[in-house]
Simulated scan of single mutants.
Amino acid sequence: DVATSSSKLRGRAVIDHAVPTATARALAVLAPSAVRIGDGFQASGLRNREQVGGLTPRAAVEWASEQGSALALSWAESFLTAAESVGQQVASHFGKKLLNSSAPLDEEGLYFDFVHLVCRFSQEESQAQEAPEEFEEFSGYIPANAKDLFNQELTLEKAKAACSAALECEAFTFQAGAKPEEPRMVYFKAQWDLAGTGWRSFRRSPRAKEADAHAAHGDNCFEEGAFCVRKKPFYYWRSHAAVLFLHGPESGDFQGGDFFYAPSFRSPPELRVHVQPAPGRAVTFRAGAENIHGVEKVSSGTRCTLNHWLTPNAFQAAHKSELEDARKLLLRYKPKAEEL
């Protein structure tokens, strides 16, 4: 059942009308103006010819208050209500209860770990700033039989640039223990393989990944060889996730940007299971290796979603009280807006 968007075995489901269509569309209208570029991402927010912005619930209320209008505060209230509704539906779907900061620590259920409004802004080829190519780091060296290209004494950053510029370069080996800013002999290869210890090897990210807005990944584990490893420094405490789509391609706001499941990190695109965004539709899934997923490139326009991650761990739940705190803040600001 890996080739389905809903599966009890894998713990994934599509929930249509998770929030009313009109509510989702209304959230999509102001979302691009409200998000903070780079929030939750690298500072510039630039990723694969897209710029990404994010906004947490409390930040949404603060943004709305800065606008000084009842409309903006109503939008922030809809943001909080939508997040709470999706969280409750996710918990219910998996036979759990949605908990908050007032719940006894011994009560079983799910807490919000993080709630994040995310907008992806496509950028024209001529206007986009080219982000440096990504490399994956491994412990070990690439053996001599892996198609040598050339050797050169370079710093780590210059080695990455040299490999990116060489069409045939697949990876390179750099001396372990050397400081990145110190030139060292670098061995460039046209073929990937790994052996031994005492060296650092860097592999260019697969071309298929470069085409995606968010490459195939797990929400509580990271790729290590053929496995998805659930441990530090990743968000290993997360157990469930959900994505609420605020609009779809039919709105004319964007093209592309399909959510997808993949059998593995490096599965070819033809094995993906796609879920097309639609206003009010949500996907929910267990946040583990059984649900590797990603987002395909937004080819034009701006795509916004409301993302949720949940955990049974009260001590790790970063947003355990986020929605409660945001609502209290909203109540402080609403009377001021009504006086205007």
Rank of each mutant, 00 (worst) to 15 (best):
N220M: 02
H319K: 10
A165E: 11
L9S: 14
A72N: 01
F94S: 04
A176R: 12
T56L: 10
P206K: 09
T284F: 08
K328M: 11
A213C: 13
A82Y: 06
S85G: 13
R204L: 14
F121V: 07
G140P: 03
R266F: 12
P268R: 08
S201L: 00
P268A: 12
R47F: 11
L167E: 15
V29I: 05
Q276G: 11
F254S: 01
C163Y: 03
E125D: 10
A13C: 07
W237T: 04
P57E: 12
V295G: 00
F150L: 11
D39N: 15
R332I: 09
R47Y: 13
T173M: 08
L9P: 02
A215F: 08
D219S: 05
C221N: 09
R272G: 06
A314Y: 04
S205I: 13
S251N: 05
K232D: 14
E324Q: 14
T311V: 03
F222N: 01
S5H: 05
H293N: 10
D106V: 05
R49C: 09
V35Y: 01
H116R: 14
D16M: 11
K232H: 13
K179F: 13
A226R: 09
R47A: 10
P268I: 07
A326M: 04
G256M: 00
A31K: 01
R286T: 07
A144Q: 12
G257T: 03
A26G: 04
K158H: 14
L55N: 04
L105M: 08
T4M: 07
V19R: 02
N145G: 10
A262T: 02
A76H: 01
Q175R: 15
P268V: 09
S65E: 15
S92F: 12
E130A: 15
F79Y: 13
V61P: 00
E324H: 10
L73D: 00
Q152W: 05
K147S: 12
H93E: 10
L331S: 15
F285H: 03
E322F: 07
A166K: 06
P277Y: 00
A195M: 04
A64R: 01
A262D: 01
M185Q: 13
Q175L: 14
N145I: 05
C169A: 07
E62I: 12
A190Y: 03
S321G: 08
V273Y: 00
A18K: 00
K189V: 02
R238E: 03
Y236D: 12
H116E: 11
V229R: 06
A64G: 01
Q152I: 05
H217G: 02
F121M: 04
A70W: 10
P249Q: 14
E153P: 06
S74F: 08
F150T: 10
Y111H: 14
A178I: 11
L80H: 05
Y235A: 09
G45I: 10
A31N: 01
L194S: 04
Q127I: 11
E62S: 14
E270K: 12
F79K: 01
L246W: 01
F79C: 04
S300C: 07
F112Y: 10
C119Q: 02
F79E: 04
W63C: 05
A216V: 07
G95D: 10
G294E: 06
D39M: 12
G252L: 05
Y261G: 02
R266L: 15
S85Y: 06
F114Q: 12
F285W: 09
G198F: 06
F254E: 01
D39A: 15
E84W: 11
A171L: 02
F94N: 01
Q255R: 09
A146F: 04
E339R: 15
E130Q: 15
F121H: 06
P269M: 07
